[in-house]
């Protein structure tokens, strides 16, 4: 079994965390997000991202607004809401805990 396969469920689970992180820097639309993730281990596709974003919006963590684009139709630009910022803070804390645990167990 390939190493990346072993971590497939973990990468999938972390996708939400990473999407929130990317959106927290500045408002983005889906193509930006895909491009940002494309060269990482977390490369993903529209088929995964749109459903994920719709859930995050339903949970009130992100919101979007339509913005005109030079090329083509208006796009949805996603931004982080206040609850989304709180959630991201908690996720980051938790992620650091996990990292500390992993480091501590190895030594």
């Amino acid at each position: 079994m390939q190493i990346d396969q072993k971590f497939a469920p973990i990468r999938k689970g972390l996708l939400e965390f990473l999407v929130l992180r990317i959106i927290s820097i500045r408002t983005v639309y889906v193509a930006d997000l895909l491009k940002r993730l494309a060269d990482t281990e977390f490369a993903t596709q529209e088929g995964t991202l749109y459903p994920l974003l719709s859930r995050l919006r339903r949970e009130g963590l992100v919101d979007y607004e339509w913005q005109e684009s030079d090329a083509g139709p208006p796009r949805k630009y996603y931004r982080l809401t206040a609850p989304g910022k709180d959630q991201l803070g908690e996720l980051e804390t938790y992620w650091q805990q996990i990292n500390a645990t992993i480091t501590g167990l190895g030594s």
Binding site: K12, L15, E16, T44, Q45, E46, G47, T48, Y50, P51, L52, S54, R55
Partner: peptide
């Protein structure tokens, strides 16, 4: 490129 639509992430 679109990839299969993932109902579970939603």
């Amino acid at each position: 490129e679109m990839g299969p639509v993932d109902g579970a992430t939603a």
